[in-house]
Design a protein around this nucleic acid. Structure first.
Lengths: 194, 194
DNA sequence: GTCTATAATGGGATAGAC
DNA sequence: GTCTATCCCATTATAGAC
């Protein structure tokens, strides 16, 4: 990973973000040093500061851009039946969780490491994502095809359940992604009383 | 919180554990210093080492004793119908999560901060707790009162869902503990196809 | 059992050369 | 844009006085 002056300059930015995401997810924000990140990228620590003003901004950028991507990639078609929308949400959430497990885990776990300002911003994005699911449950109840005891709590319960995939899923393990989606769909349908 | 020589010696041990548990849960193991823990207790940093050989052992003790308590407090009566056992488990898990939210959160989140040896030990305890739930699902299927697409995965999904309470529950908030149990029981029943 | 003091190391961040 | 070198401060852990 050694590096001579100036080579690969154009791709270092993404590499810094990749390394930070991976290390933060594996060891926790507070446990990772800028020196470790630099070593993973193959540069010296000073070079990192060409890409981020400080460590906190690096974390906030990772979380913000993950939430931005989630929100911009998610396409809800509210003209569809609620059960179709729910299954689409499930498929989307699991696909994302398995494609970018570190970003998902990080966004779930390191909110607490954000400065108050960054926390407010990112919690707001997170809330919009939760609300997207809650709207589907509301539609399902209006259609009479779902029934939950408390809509907000059911939303949080479903998000926790789905995000939990990142805790046990292993690429190349017992189950492939399609199978995981099918199993969770069974579970989720029951949870919302469908 | 200042302290003169020798006072309160007999209760410092528990205070150290309380402070460490609370700080680790709020800020993450790696982000908390022994100085912060000492300040919270009201002693100087050197005094901590009368109660723990090092910081890693402090974390491991917290996680190990939490899991030990969980496993020793949980009383499963396998002569009961599986749905009764499941509801008892739910009640137990939520009661514990709301009584010791920091310990639950910590045991869920800081496994990654353990040394490999400590990780093995505590993951084993954790697995025994998960297996207790899985056994109830197996009994429910045998009785024909539950139906899940994949028992191991349903177990993990339920644990994630239940442990998620610690993410949003606030003492004195909209819902009291009894109400939370009732709502989750509705959700869980659906999830297991009962 | 707790204090003060200190050792040894590593932390985030910056300056200036190239 | 990256390097080397450095500043300054925090870190874990220990030693020895009380």
């Amino acid at each position: 990973m050694a590096r001579t002056h100036g080579s690969k300059a154009e791709i270092t930015g993404p590499l810094v973000r990749d390394a930070a995401r991976s290390l933060f997810a594996r060891h926790g924000y507070g446990a990772v040093s800028m020196r470790q990140i630099a070593a993973e990228v193959g540069v010296q620590v000073g070079a990192l500061y060409a890409y981020t003003p400080d460590k906190q901004a690096l974390l906030a950028d990772l979380l913000r851009s993950h939430m931005d991507e989630l929100l911009s990639e998610w396409r809800d078609d509210s003209s569809q039946p609620a059960l179709v929308r729910l299954k689409d949400f499930l498929r989307f959430h699991i696909a994302t969780s398995l494609k970018r497990p570190e970003a998902v885990f990080l966004s779930y776990m390191e909110l607490r490491s954000l400065s108050p300002e960054n926390f407010r911003d990112i919690a707001r994005l997170r809330r919009r994502y939760e609300d997207a699911l809650e709207a589907i449950l509301a539609a399902g109840e209006a259609e009479g095809v779902m029934s939950v005891p408390d809509r907000r709590l059911a939303t949080m319960a479903l998000i926790s359940m789905l995000t939990g995939v990142t805790n046990w899923y292993r690429e190349g393990g017992r189950l492939d992604q399609e199978r995981v989606v099918a199993i969770y769909w069974d579970l989720v349908r029951g949870t919302v009383g469908a």
